[in-house]
Amino acid sequence: MSGPDETSPDETGRDQTPKAGSEETHGAQAAQGPVPPPEPAEDDDAANLPARRGEERLSEPVVRTGMFGTFGSSDTSGYGRLQVRRPPPIGSPRPYGSYFDDVADALDTALAGGFGDAIERVVADRGELTFHVRRERLPEVAARLRDDPALRFELCTGVSGVHYPDDPGRELHAVYHLLSITHNRRLRLEVSAPDSDPHILSLVGVYPAVNWHERETWDFFGIIFDGHPALTRIEMPDDWKGHPQRKDYPLGGIPVEYRGAKIPAPDERRHYS
């Protein structure tokens, strides 16, 4: 999900460094000093031409309108008609760069050629590799990633959820970060589920460490991990209603009272997004 976000004509006039397949990596290469920026991708693929990119952008739904969080007749900012669209989901083309190709190839071998079935999309961005995994295939992919000698991602450092209400059919994402101590590599797995069917298969059998993380993700987002031994609330009180970190759950603050003024709670204030 990278790519420059053109929110307004000349708002972000800063340097647009190329993002896809960037050379900034963890680990081994970091010690070599500042890395020169990569050459712009010289592909004749029409997908990268500005006109094509513009069509992609305009076909995305609008996620925000206006500026400063004001709407209606009181909005004198002049930005009332501004429409911000959701950034289009990108997939990185091969070659991904650094160790990412090795990981993808090794996983393909481990899945006996089923890489394309299990992985919907690969994003290699800002020095990190993300596999968007189909949720039915998640435990199998995770088991291969853990056990295959060329992969050996022994540690799963955790699961977290992200709620994208603007992405119908794929609202709830669960993000797993894996770490390979043997090969000194990192990987991210991302699984999505719709709000209407928020079930994702649990990885407790593969990585017992995610036990509490899955409970936390259930607590905060409502993602039900099938196969989890004890999916209960962990951070909120046991009888709490709702899943607090979803975008449709209010922040829940109270107005701040001063002498002579009352400032609304943080989620109701003016904002500059």
């Binding site: 990278s2 976000d5 955790g158 993000v175 990192r186 500059y272």
Partner: peptide
């Protein structure tokens, strides 16, 4: 403004690996 995307940065905190997974949608 931070361009859209996500990043995970991990450091060696006194207790272990402390990671921050940050997702941006291009806003402030």
């Amino acid at each position: 403004r931070v361009p859209a995307g996500q990043a995970y940065a991990a450091i060696e905190a006194p207790r272990g690996e402390l990671g921050a997974h940050v997702v941006s949608d291009g806003g402030t």
